[in-house]
């Protein structure tokens, strides 16, 4: 029973983390969500469905990959202007989690 409860809690965590996300912009159709650091960022970074970008090049590779739907940009990896530039010169739409 207790094990079930912990499994249920694990299922709920990604949902709870996303509730902390705030949509702050849409760049060329890609929604960008601001993510607070700490546990919320940890949960999203650990989500296997989300690709984490630690460099601008890694970010662009993920943006160009049709198999990738969601990208997590770690804090201070690069600035907003560069993100806009990369999303504009590529045509696929991604969900971006932007760690603040």
């Amino acid at each position: 029973m207790q094990q079930n409860a912990s499994i249920a809690a694990a299922d709920l965590l990604p949902v709870a983390a996303r509730l902390k996300a705030q949509k702050i912009a849409s760049i060329e159709g890609s929604p960008v969500f601001a993510i607070p650091g700490g546990w919320v960022a940890d949960i999203l970074r650990a989500d296997p469905a989300i690709v984490t970008a630690d460099t601008p090049s890694a970010f662009e590779t993920a943006v160009q990959d049709p198999e990738v739907a969601t990208i997590f940009v770690s804090r201070d990896t690069f600035g907003w202007r560069l993100m806009e530039r990369i999303l504009t010169r590529n045509s696929l739409v991604k969900t971006i989690f932007w760690e603040e």
Partner: peptide, 18 residues
């Protein structure tokens, strides 16, 4: 070579593909 202000610090990044 991109420099951007974020809060009180300046973020640096290189757009190698650009």
């Amino acid at each position: 070579f991109v420099e951007e202000k974020r809060g009180d610090k300046t973020l640096v990044s290189i757009d190698w593909n650009g």
